[in-house]
Design a protein around this nucleic acid. Structure first.
Lengths: 306, 306
DNA sequence: TTAGGCTTGACAGTGGATGGACAATGACCT
DNA sequence: AGGTCATTGTCCATCCACTGTCAAGCCTAA
């Protein structure tokens, strides 16, 4: 779900609505003309201006229409009713064994029973079935959270945790390599800062970046700022990103040092649970989650550097 | 944003701004002239001097403009509002640049240029990105049609066709094996009937079935009905499916023979271009396409065995 | 002299809007 | 089973405002 409240003031031109909903401009106009599904405001010169609520509604209509429902019949429903209907359709379809939630549960079962081969087989199956993005966002990420919780609450031992870690890391590494991209792809350098040994978040970020067409260089865990800076320079990094699972004491200092060592035009990003509780460090951007990470990488793809 | 020391003093000439934002100098000047989007200082001799804040703002404007917003409407917004808007646009974008169509075109290019390694790399990337179902329906299936057309029209040679066939068949076989399922999964037996050497359709069907949780047994191409029936019996098939690309003469007779040899509770399905022009054979169901295939398999997943 | 910068003006391409038309799909009625 | 009709996504044809790019002419520092 979105964390930013839908502001009524935000008004979007039709091109943005197309990008957000996946509906073509012809369909957007046809639906409005024929069924009056939304009533966007108009700018002074007659261009449509959609509110966030409109966009939300159109997205729901799109999903309902794809689920086989008739647009004409849906037009008179309120957005709330639409939401309910779409949820219901999704519920009905999710009895199949091939959905994210099901994979996650089965994978957690494999973790509890200390069955790494089964875990790997499940991961492979989930990846091929769902595609890399859904796999990472709806299977791997929640699975990591669940493993962490289970461990803290004593429902699994450290042996379970280590076995699952090894399998997951290996799998994510394989995925990243399988997504390798052309040599002229933009480059991102990943590491975890000094004091941070957990590489999960970084490996997930690596796979997501590789999927989006980046060349990924993984420097390693527990690295001092100077080494990260050197690696970034030698690697020709356009972006440097760190993952911090725990809120280690010296994290802010390390980030500050790294920021000072890198050229200004190289963004420094930091993600993970440890980053959430972090004080602001000038010139360092916090990454909330995978979607945010991919959004941050996107614009740099086309910035022509020379 | 931080008000740390370097930003207030740093002043950049327009060339640096172009390099950093990717905007041409003409655009930089036009935006300033028309919308007063920034107000750079001027040197004694009239040259523009941009601050880091200006550069930041221009970069955001660039991204927002590319996301489909009009520069005129953006000019009055604060940099902070711009930042939020750009983040949201990028994060909520539903249509990623890597669409099935683009993969299909690139793959067709690899076929034309007789580059099987590149084709395989593209297929792998498309599969991981899209997930198996979309991959099969939107990339592989259209690609096969396109290759067939190109061959008939003489745009590619038989060598191209064979190289592509080999790569595709191998890849689909790998995908099917990678999706292998538990031993107690329901079983489907696949083959092509006597006279039919093209196994494409069958391999696609195999991958789709494996994805949906079926245990797939591939008997082979060009098999007489008796051998298929034997294989089905020994394999414990709950469903038997054939693929017929060409409308071979004896197809109907073969289907009839197979139908007679199998128990009544085992459905016989036949798909492919050859099946479309086929006369009806009692007890044999025609499969239109992949979606139809998956729909037909679904109810048999849970049918009680005996 | 050359290269980069500045200004003004012009121009063509793009995106958006409208209304109408068309073709495929599927439901419904013999 | 076959024909009919409504639904719906897509596609012009035309118009308008916006916007990126280019050209011409001038200026100054290296």
């Amino acid at each position: 779900m979105s964390r930013s409240k839908p502001t009524d003031v935000a008004r979007h031109p039709i091109g943005v609505v197309r990008a957000r909903t996946g509906l073509s401009v012809e369909v957007l106009r046809a639906w409005e003309r024929r069924y009056a599904v939304v009533r966007p405001l108009r700018s002074e010169d007659g261009k449509r201006l959609y509110s966030d609520a409109d966009v939300e509604r159109l997205g729901l209509l799109h999903r309902a229409a794809r689920a086989g429902r008739s647009v004409a019949a849906l037009a008179s429903l309120s957005t709330g009713e639409l939401q309910r209907m779409v949820d219901e359709d999704a519920e009905r379809a999710s009895t199949r064994p091939t959905l994210p939630g099901s994979y996650r549960e089965q994978a957690m079962g494999a973790v509890r029973e200390l069955a790494p081969e089964r875990l790997e087989s499940l991961l492979r199956r989930a990846l091929l079935s769902l595609g890399a993005v859904t796999f990472l966002e709806e299977v791997v990420a929640p699975l990591l959270v669940e493993i962490g919780d289970a461990w803290h609450e004593g429902r699994i031992t450290v042996a379970h945790e280590h076995a699952a870690s090894a399998t997951l890391l290996q799998f994510l590494g394989w995925l990243t390599r399988s997504l390798e991209v052309p040599g002229d792809a933009p480059r991102v350098v990943l590491a975890t800062p000094r004091g941070e040994h957990h590489a999960f978040g970084a490996m997930m970020a690596a796979a997501a970046a590789a999927h989006d067409g980046w060349h990924v260089t993984w420097l390693g865990s527990d690295l001092p700022a100077a080494q990260i800076a050197t690696g970034a320079e030698q690697g020709g990094a356009r972006v440097v990103a760190l993952s911090a699972a725990s809120d280690a004491a010296g994290l802010e200092r390390e980030l500050g040092a790294l920021r000072a060592l890198l050229p200004r035009h190289v963004p420094v990003l930091v993600g993970g649970a440890g980053a959430a509780t972090l004080a602001d460090v000038p010139g360092v951007t916090r990454v909330r989650d995978l979607a945010h990470w991919r959004a941050l990488l996107d614009p740099h793809m086309t910035s022509t550097e020379d």
